[in-house]
Simulated assay, not measured.
Amino acid sequence: MRLLHAFALLLVLCLPAFAVNPDEVLADPALEARARELSAELRCLVCQNQSIDDSDADLARDLRVIVRERLVAGDSDAEVKDHIVSRYGEFVLLRPVIAPHTLFLWAAGPIILAAGLIGLWLAARRQPPEPRSLTREEEAAIEALQSGYDQVEGSKSSGRNETP
């Protein structure tokens, strides 16, 4: 039984911690559920990687209050989002919109990935150049260098052997 209680406690601790204060919660459960859904889609402008539902920042609290006020006033979810976006810009949306002015941002990732894959494919297809054979003059020059090196090495080693 203790193991079951410990497991249940562990599950409760693993649940996400919401930053919504009790004084922010709406009396109507349906409106509160809509407010939670909207809050999960809006970015905290202070934290930037959290929704306003998860953030403890003062600005996130203000945004949560605005969302709830607009819902109580009778706005639809789209109207609430439009109101928030008109005040804070599209950056406040956790899921950015696909529009003509953001098309480059959406397309840039796949375009860069495709260019990289094409570059890798072209590099893999390229064959190393075949070695060319030496001309007679080059072979003669190499032989002359080798014979001169052999003579120098021979004289060095013979000179060493003569010295006691």
Rank of each mutant, 00 (worst) to 15 (best):
H101D: 02
A60E: 02
K81D: 02
L103F: 15
V97T: 06
V72P: 01
Q50C: 10
Y88V: 06
I52A: 05
S76F: 07
L117W: 02
L63W: 01
Q127I: 05
E69L: 05
L113F: 09
L45I: 07
V97S: 10
G74I: 01
K81W: 01
E90P: 01
A107S: 09
A40K: 09
D54M: 14
V80E: 03
A60Y: 06
V65Y: 11
D56F: 04
R70G: 01
Q127K: 15
E138A: 08
D75R: 08
N49A: 00
G116N: 14
R132L: 13
R132V: 15
P110M: 07
D75C: 10
L105V: 10
C44M: 04
E138Q: 15
L71Q: 07
V65K: 11
V92R: 05
G74N: 03
I84F: 04
G89R: 02
D77F: 01
W106A: 10
A60K: 00
L59R: 12
W106L: 08
H83Q: 07
T102A: 08
I66S: 08
P100Q: 06
P131N: 03
L120H: 05
A40G: 15
G74S: 04
I118P: 04
R132F: 15
D62Y: 00
A107H: 01
V97I: 08
G119T: 09
F91K: 01
A114N: 04
E90L: 11
D53C: 04
E79I: 01
L63F: 09
E130A: 14
G89A: 07
L113W: 05
D58K: 11
A99T: 13
R132G: 11
R70C: 13
L63G: 03
S133C: 08
G116E: 05
A73G: 01
L105E: 12
A114C: 08
P131T: 11
P129M: 10
A140Q: 11
A140N: 08
A114D: 00
L113Y: 06
A78C: 03
C47E: 14
L93I: 04
I112W: 10
I66D: 06
A124K: 05
D58C: 03
R43V: 02
D58W: 06
R95A: 12
P128Y: 07
I111G: 05
W121C: 06
R125S: 14
D53E: 15
D77P: 04
E41G: 06
E90T: 12
L134M: 13
I84T: 02
R70Q: 15
A73V: 01
A140L: 10
E79G: 13
I66Y: 00
E69P: 00
E138F: 02
A115M: 10
L120N: 09
S76G: 13
P129T: 03
A40Q: 12
R126E: 12
H101K: 09
A73D: 15
A124Q: 08
L42A: 08
A57L: 09
Q50T: 07
P100G: 10
A107M: 15
L103W: 08
E137L: 00
N49R: 03
E137S: 04
A115W: 13
